[in-house]
Structure formats: structure tokens, C-alpha cells
Simulated assay, not measured.
Amino acid sequence: MAVSFKKTYKFAVKSALYITLFSTGLVVFLMFFFLDFSLPFTICFAISIGMFSFFVLQYRVEHFIYRRVKKIYDDVSLLESSTFRNQPITTDMATLTREVQKFATDKKLEIEMLKVREEYRREFLGNVSHELKTPLFTVQGYLSTLLDGAMNDKSIRKKYLERAEKGVERLIYIVQDLDMITKLEVGDLNLEITKFDIIKLVQNVFDLLEMEASKKDILLLFDMKYNKPIMVVGDREKIEQVITNLVMNSVKYGKENGSTEVSIESLTENKIIVRITDNGEGIEKPHISRLFERFYRVDKSGSRDAGGSGLGLSIVKHIIEAHDERIYVESQFGIGSEFSFTLEKAK
């Protein structure tokens, strides 16, 4: 049966074999001419010199390659030196090449991820600055006008103070939303889990947003008549905020004389799915994956005419994930959008 050596030892085995053959041949030659030939002595000598050569070569080559490869890794910062301390050293260049490629690929992906995060950080800070700057400058402008003499006119004073108040309210709204997202991300926002009727909750949202929808002649409706309550488990207040944000977005970006429809379906034995569907503008595919980012807006013009803090969908996503549930979005540009999320059924 052929002996199968590890590939990492092939170099040392072959080199030791060459040295053994040469050394043994030399000894046999010297013994033949100068001493009496002894087969046992020759065999012992061959075995000894072979083993000695193998271990010396293996040890020396491993450390030779290790020191130089490690230095290269340290110099180019591709690998962490601790990686080698925890793994046996190999003289197999194919293995080393695979390890280099693997770690280089991992580092490349890590660098690309860091670049993406840095770009997101810059974009996020720019968006925060823009969102805060607009109401701040508005408030400052109205107050400066009043201080410059317009305060003496009662009608102007009241109008400007009311507008300044709206700017302050917008600032408070943005800060509160940011605070909520931060708490959701770090897990500091406690959920008050109770049983409630999701049908009744949706109807409450409809009642709240009915006047807003009527401004654009948008009809708020259920997809069918629900004759009995559908009880679910969750934080009632937070789920109401989720539905409010989704329906409000549907109204904001919906077409006049359009509709926003809510449907509630049984998804599995323990889950329901709530769908909010509209026939509005729809969302182009490249934007869908970024919809739930903070301050991300499909409209890159910088317009804030639609109002809001730009944090609504991000808050929605965090609230749903805090319930260990999932949220989905499907949209066709020019046709409409559907946002849906799951909830646990009450037992």
C-alpha cells in the first residue's frame, strides 16, 4: 500500500530523500574502498540521516517561510499576526496562497463595508444638518424680523410668532423621532405588550387621517368588511404609530382621487400580515432597498414640501423589528406601492 504524505511535507521528504541517497551512497563508496562493507550499518545510517534531514529541513523551511510571509502580511496590513499564532505553520505554498487570497478577500470586503458606512455617515450627517437647519433658520428669520421692528404691528407679530412656533414644533418632532430610533436601536425603548383588536386600531388611524386624506380626495378603506375582531399581540401605541406613518406616507405621495387600502390576512397559524396598498406614484426599484434609511428621500431635489421628519419609515422598521417581526415593501413606479408587516396572533 502506498504511503500518503501530507502535501505540506512533500518538500521536506523529497529533499531529505536526496540527501539520504547522496550520503548513503558516499558512505557505501568509502566503506567499499577503505573499510569492510556492513549492510546493517548502512541501513541504520540511511534511516538516521533521512530522519535528521527531514526534521531539520521541515523546521528550517517552515520558519523561513513563516518569517517572510508574516513580514509581508504585517507590512501590507492584510492579515492579523495573531492569525498565524493560532494555526500550524505550513510549507505548502498552495495552502499559503489560498490563505492569502482568503484573508485578502475578507479585508477587501471589510474595507468596502467601511467605505459604505463612511459614505452613509456623511450622508446621514448632511441630512441631519439639512433637516435641522431649515426650521432653525425659519425661526431665526421670523424672530429677527420681529426684533427689527415688526413687533409693533400686532397682526404681523402674531403671524410671525405662530410661524416660529411651527418651526420649533418641527425641531421637537425631529429630535423626538431621532431619540426614539436611538432607543429602539440600543434596546432601551420598553414595549408594553398587550392584546388588542387590529381592526379597531386601523379604524382609529383612518379617523385620525380622514381630513388629511380628504384634501387630496384620497379614499381610506378596508379591502373587505371584517365582521369580528382580529386580536393580536404587541405594543398597541407603537403599532398604531406604524400604521399611522404608513397610511400618512400613502396619503402624502398618493395621487388625487386615489385610494389607500388596508387588508389583514392570516399568514400562518400564529401570524397575521397587515397590508397597506395605494395606487399612488410608486417607487423606482433602485430606491426600494434604501427606503428605511434615516432621512432617505426618493426625491433628491431637497424639497420638504411633503412635511414630516424624514424618519417615519426608519421608525416603522425599528418598531416592527423590536417586535421580532418583519416588514416588506413592493412597488411599481407609476402604479402604486404596498407596505406590509407581520404580527403575532393573540392566543
Rank of each mutant, 00 (worst) to 15 (best):
K159T: 06
K317W: 04
K225S: 08
Q58A: 04
R326K: 11
E99H: 02
T24V: 13
Y328R: 05
G234N: 12
V76K: 09
L208E: 09
K195N: 14
N279T: 01
F137M: 11
L79Q: 14
I198M: 09
K14L: 12
V76W: 14
L136G: 01
E119H: 06
Q332T: 13
N227H: 11
G282E: 10
I320V: 15
F11V: 00
Y173R: 09
G282K: 08
A164E: 03
I19P: 03
F84N: 13
M151C: 04
Y253S: 04
K154P: 14
Y253W: 09
E284N: 12
K271E: 13
S266L: 10
R121P: 04
G50A: 08
D153Y: 08
H63K: 09
E284K: 15
L136V: 00
K10V: 15
E212C: 00
L178F: 08
F32A: 06
F45P: 00
S144R: 09
T244C: 02
S23Y: 13
F34I: 07
T268Q: 06
L26R: 05
F292E: 08
K300S: 04
K158D: 09
S289K: 11
Y73P: 02
K70A: 11
P286Q: 03
E321L: 07
T268R: 11
T95R: 03
G234Q: 07
Y328F: 15
K216R: 12
F124M: 09
F206N: 04
D223Q: 04
E321V: 03
K183V: 00
T138D: 09
E284M: 06
K10C: 06
K255G: 03
E321D: 12
K225L: 05
S250T: 12
P88S: 11
E118T: 06
V28S: 03
D106P: 01
V175W: 00
D177N: 15
L219Q: 11
D235F: 03
V69R: 15
H323L: 02
T24D: 07
V233N: 10
T342F: 04
T91C: 12
S214M: 15
I218P: 11
L171M: 14
Y160A: 02
E162S: 03
L147M: 14
P286N: 12
E265G: 01
K317L: 05
V233L: 14
V69C: 02
T182K: 14
Q58H: 00
I193T: 07
E131P: 00
K108S: 12
L220N: 12
I288Y: 08
P88N: 10
T182C: 01
N270F: 01
K158V: 12
D188H: 03
I43C: 05
A164N: 09
C44S: 12
V205L: 01
A164K: 03
I49T: 13
S214W: 12
F137P: 00
V28P: 01
L219K: 15
Q101K: 08
S15A: 13
L267G: 07
T194G: 03
V233I: 14
K200Q: 13
L219F: 06
V76I: 15
E269D: 15
L208K: 10
V69W: 10
V247T: 13
K255H: 00
T90V: 12
S340N: 09
K158R: 14
K6N: 11
